[in-house]
């Protein structure tokens, strides 16, 4: 009986849809039926029929989905965005500025339905819930197609055991197929940029610090942070935790004493705030990375698996190369 208040507290938080999929993760390693020509997709265990006519009224939830459509030149199909994580990169600014915002967080079912969408494209599986945008089966019954970034699938067999760029490229292909457009240009550009990234050869260790003060929330061993760190030649000190992101502890961080700290920059928790916290706490102030200001930063919106992952890796590689460790 005494846990009731806690359940209430948790319940409300889940209700606003903040919880659950915070640990976004990557695509199915078993893309059951996901070639651009197939008529159905197995999306996180939900069968999604590729509509005969390309969707014209799309709602995107989370930045990853909005940016995917912008990257494919499909911004004009978006009738509403919700739960955006931050500004889009410069090249899409103009297109993004026109998009109506439905809700700063997960929109409710009614808000979603009022926009009369034919496709809802979500960055997190948990965005589709009865107290969020609606369950996938309810929306399907109303004739609305739903799609979740495969990298964010949580089910065993669908959550990537270790995210790779193949998972991200698969999402690009699937989304292109839903809209009956070609993915070639985008994939070519992504592959080209990826090939151009110089792996750091110094064998540096790193902490991917997302948020949290008393309990640090860090990029762990199987998600986008791990993929990016692998790509640019950083050794993740939290790699042993089999999760995308995870609550960690300061003692392990201090014990590992990482060479570099990757800071996630969000409007609600900026990189500068985190630097202040690291420097202000006597326990972390003596970390090598903190004493020598060896930080590299990534925008929150680019820290989740998606069309920005390659460019985030390229950007971090450049910042890393500029760090002088003597």
């Amino acid at each position: 009986m005494s846990s009731l208040p806690r359940i209430l507290a948790v319940g409300v938080i889940v209700a606003i849809g903040l919880s659950g999929c915070a640990t976004t993760s990557a695509t199915s390693t078993t893309p059951s039926s996901a070639t651009p020509t197939s008529t159905t997709l197995d999306n996180c265990g939900t069968t999604v029929r590729v509509p005969a006519v390309a969707p014209k009224r799309v709602i995107t939830i989370k930045s990853t989905s909005t940016e995917m459509l912008l990257a494919l030149g499909l911004g004009d199909r978006i009738v509403g965005t919700a739960f955006q994580d931050g500004p889009v990169p410069a090249q899409w600014k103009a297109a993004a500025a026109k998009l109506p915002t439905l809700s700063p967080q997960v929109p409710s079912q009614e808000v979603v339905l009022a926009s009369e969408p034919d496709l809802i494209y979500a960055g997190w599986e948990s965005n589709f819930s009865a107290d969020g945008a609606g369950t996938r089966s309810d929306l399907a019954a109303l004739g609305i197609t739903t799609y979740v970034s495969p990298a964010a699938c949580k089910e065993v067999g669908y959550q990537p055991t270790r995210l790779s760029f193949a998972n991200i490229f698969q999402e690009i292909g699937e989304v292109a197929s839903i809209f009956h457009v070609s993915d070639t240009t985008l994939l070519t550009a992504q592959r080209k940029q990826l090939a151009g990234i110089q792996k750091d050869k110094r064998g540096l260790t790193a902490l991917w610090y997302s948020s949290g003060s008393s309990t640090p929330y860090v990029g762990a061993g199987i998600g986008a942070p791990q993929l990016v760190m692998d790509t640019i030649g950083l050794k993740n000190i939290a790699a042993s935790v089999k999760d995308t992101w995870a609550s960690f502890n300061w003692e392990s961080i201090i014990n590992a004493n990482p060479d570099v700290i990757v800071l996630v920059d969000a409007s609600w928790n900026t990189a500068a705030t985190k630097i202040g916290m690291l420097e202000g706490n006597p326990a972390t102030a003596n970390l090598d990375a903190v004493k020598n200001h060896r930080y590299i930063t990534v925008p929150f919106a680019a820290s989740e698996a998606g069309v920005r992952t390659v460019s985030a890796a390229a950007d971090l590689a450049t910042q890393l190369a500029a760090l002088n460790l003597t």
């Binding site: 948790v10 948020s211 409007s267 928790n269």
Partner: peptide, 16 residues
């Protein structure tokens, strides 16, 4: 919390 929490700051409050 519902009215004020942004981003993923709820997580730490939940722990607390």
């Amino acid at each position: 919390i519902f009215w004020t929490v942004t981003g993923d700051s709820y997580r730490e409050i939940l722990n607390w």
